[in-house]
Nucleic acid binder design. Structure first.
Lengths: 209, 209
DNA sequence: ACAAGTTGTGTACGACTGTACACATAGCTG
DNA sequence: CAGCTATGTGTACAGTCGTACACAACTTGT
């Protein structure tokens, strides 16, 4: 038998996951990826796949878990860098966009998964977004910026914020990362969206009925 | 050779398109559909496909065109039914949801296409959304509801509205059409999103800088 | 009515797919 | 050291894929 490469434990597993991400990054849709294709990209024999995943959906689910880590890292950085409240939106959107560029394939995978073909992956991503929104609500409450809102309305506002940012993600994934002009347009537009939402939140109570 | 069924002109073409939609409606992702699969669902021999489409992307593009018609029909109905401005949001969201249920597969296809693997389809759907937003801006201007906004800000507001509704579409596609409780939740939540946005728009000018 | 064009059918083929199985190697535990 | 388990390899096979080609049947224009 041909020689066996030395490997660290779990190396192939990672190679397979990042191979799938690479293919997604090249413009493929996750739902259209096949086992052989992924193993080929990973430089591994097809049957190795089954040592780590039951099928492609399983791999997708584990990618969602890793996506959670990426998002948490991003949140941590945002919390550390957003000190004064006046530039809160600009800073946060900037950090979001730079993370989205740095982990382009991951965020591409996330954007795809929202309307993907595996219900489990959909739910996973949706759950990450819900967590994100609730953390955002926590932060806003801590900063006392919107303390006139009841819990439900604060949650709704954060939900809308997260959705708007997620939709901007789709825009961002549609342009080349080097096209700085387009990226800047998306950044500005996203900021304006969030400003509009927060203006709405600031004047919300009288409309609450 | 076996007998040839009588057919109307363009019948197979329609059968192929609705076969693709049917498969999407069954939970498949458009990007993962194959020619053979679609022709099988349409009850047609594989090679017939090429009489009408160059490849699956081509079929997708033609679906986007049909999607445009569906959206325009929806807009027309909304304009006809929304007479008094006070229930504008509730009426519009209601009409949107009932159309989304009635053409579930179409809207599923739309939600998928936003982050799909064909750039052309992405652009097509994005362009439909832009058209939708600009028509909405027209209507709002005609109703004189937001005449304190400059053109750019009105356009941005409408864009955000359309995006929020489109995102709600993803929610809606995630629940069974018969689950009336969930659908009602989505309806209410979407209305609140739009109310929040319009409250923001009503108080926007002072923040405009 | 006949020629031309259009649309659907049947057959064919090479490439690719998922996955089963037996086997080899590495690392861990005793 | 022996043996066990986890992990990677190679081979194999039946099913599916996209698509090329020749042919049939219907539609249309003249």
């Amino acid at each position: 038998m041909s020689e066996r490469k030395k490997r660290k434990p779990g190396e192939t597993r990672e190679k397979l996951m990042s191979a799938a991400l690479t293919l997604v990054g090249k413009g493929r849709h996750f739902a259209s990826l096949g086992i052989r294709e992924v193993t080929r990209q990973a430089g591994v024999v097809p049957t190795s796949f089954y040592r780590h995943f039951r099928n492609m959906d399983d791999l997708g689910l584990q990618l969602v878990d890793e996506l959670g880590l990426v998002l948490r890292r991003m949140m941590r950085e945002a919390r550390a860098n957003v000190l004064q409240a006046d530039k809160l939106i600009e800073e946060s959107v900037g950090i979001f966009i730079s993370h989205a560029q740095a982990n382009r394939s991951f965020f591409l995978f996330m954007a795809q998964g929202l309307a993907g073909e595996s219900r489990a992956i959909q739910d996973g991503i949706r759950s990450e977004m819900r967590y994100f929104a609730s953390e955002l609500a926590n932060d806003l409450q801590r900063l006392k910026l919107v303390d006139h809102l009841c819990d439900g309305d604060l949650e709704m506002t954060c939900d809308l914020v997260v959705r708007s940012v997620a939709f901007s993600l789709t825009d961002l994934m549609g342009v080349s990362a080097e096209d700085e002009y387009q990226v800047e347009q998306i950044r500005k537009r996203t900021c304006r969206f969030l400003q509009l939402i927060f203006v709405g939140a600031a004047h919300w109570d009288n409309k609450h009925l």
